[in-house]
Design a binder for these strands. Structure first.
Length: 340
DNA sequence: CGCCTTTGACCGGCGC
DNA sequence: GCGCCGGTCAAAGGCG
């Protein structure tokens, strides 16, 4: 679950030695928020939730043009279907995509994203949403017994955010099982073709050859989309992970649904293991974040390069002198790789 | 042995 | 009706 793959070269993206360097860049479409010029105690989350902020602008900013087949948007059913995530104070939601966030409301009524332009807005069917997987409750049985109406599709609240990361699957404290992977259409350079060619040229790569192949393969940008499902029983939360076709160093993660359980990591750690915000030099903290990122310890929520389109309003805020607040901290950082 | 990824096949919606 | 496409299934195999 660490994002590692048996696929050759897949995760050998050149690593950014200074992750903070990208923090000075504006995320895609996030015009108006500049960490450098923002007030010292204003985080990106503050920016999103601030009174002077129109979150819809942010959401729209993350939205790619319709003509672009890639780069999904901030999803969400809009305010109507957006549950009051954690409104009861107990309902666990996937970190940082609580639908109670005002930005979810601003997320619009789009589907997964612009890659799916043909899906109409759907209502969430709670009974299906909480139905157990497998066995008699399997999808095939459901399909046979209860076919959906035309245009009807199971949908839940969705939330997407972009993260600068060299790993595709960012740990978020929950356990996920990959159940599918698709090559996004209109990919300019199909990775499989590149692999085939490279393996034909270098049947037995090793050492320097392998590094060269890694670089070559990564230069040939392919666009794969992975589908994950929460492994907890009766939890139908799904997430979709893909790289931005505009910026291959950016991972776009889209969540759908709401967890019906607590994060395994938070249960284990009791929430007493937040990432230390102790002031350090940029370089030193950069290394720390690299470890978090590479060590599969919930990188997505600690990495300041994560450009959240919406944040839970009540998450703890930690002041980081150099870059304002890190608001997207969740108590789930001690658990390491789930496997491998 | 259990959990997970991989991957080809399949399904359903949509446009033409 | 047909083809395209996104999303899902499930068998096979890998890994610790």
């Amino acid at each position: 679950m660490s994002g590692e793959s048996s696929e050759p070269y897949r995760h050998d993206f050149p690593f950014h030695d200074d992750l903070f360097s990208v923090f000075s860049q504006k995320p895609h479409g996030l015009q108006g928020f500049d960490p450098q010029t923002a007030p010292p105690f204003m985080s990106f989350g503050d920016y999103l939730h601030g009174s002077t902020t129109d979150c819809s602008l942010v959401a729209q900013g993350l939205d790619a043009p319709r003509s672009q087949p890639c780069d999904p948007v901030v999803g969400g059913d809009g305010g109507e279907n957006a549950p009051a995530g954690g409104a009861d104070g107990m309902t666990p939601v996937t970190p940082n995509f609580s639908a109670s966030s005002s930005s979810t409301e601003a997320a619009g009524d789009e589907d997964w994203g612009p890659c799916k332009v043909d899906q109409p807005k759907q209502e969430v069917q709670e009974e299906e949403k909480h139905a157990p997987r497998g066995g008699e409750g399997s999808d095939k049985a459901k399909k046979a017994n209860k076919p959906r109406k035309k245009g009807e599709r199971q949908r839940g609240p969705r939330f997407a955010f972009m993260t600068k990361s060299e790993v595709d699957h960012l740990e978020d404290g929950y356990r996920w099982r990959k159940y599918g992977q698709k090559a996004v259409k209109n990919s300019p350079y199909p990775r499989r073709v590149i692999y085939l060619i490279l393996h034909l040229l270098f049947p037995f790569p090793s050492g320097m050859h392998r590094r060269i192949l890694s670089v070559l393969a990564n230069l040939c940008i392919d666009h794969l989309r992975s589908y994950y499902r929460c492994t907890a029983q009766k939890c139908n939360v799904k997430k979709r992970v893909e790289r931005s076709c505009q910026d291959p160093t950016t991972v776009i993660t889209t969540y759908e649904g709401q967890h019906t359980h607590h994060s395994p990591a938070s249960l284990r750690g009791g929430g007493a293991h937040m990432l230390s915000p102790s002031p350090t030099t940029n370089l030193r903290r950069s290394v720390l974040l690299q470890q978090v990122s590479r060590g599969s310890s919930s990188a997505g929520y600690t990495n300041p390069n994560t450009y959240h389109a919406g944040l839970p309003p009540l998450l703890p805020q930690i002041h980081v002198p150099d870059h304002g607040l890190l608001q997207d901290i969740v108590p789930s950082f001690t658990h390491g790789n789930q496997r491998r």
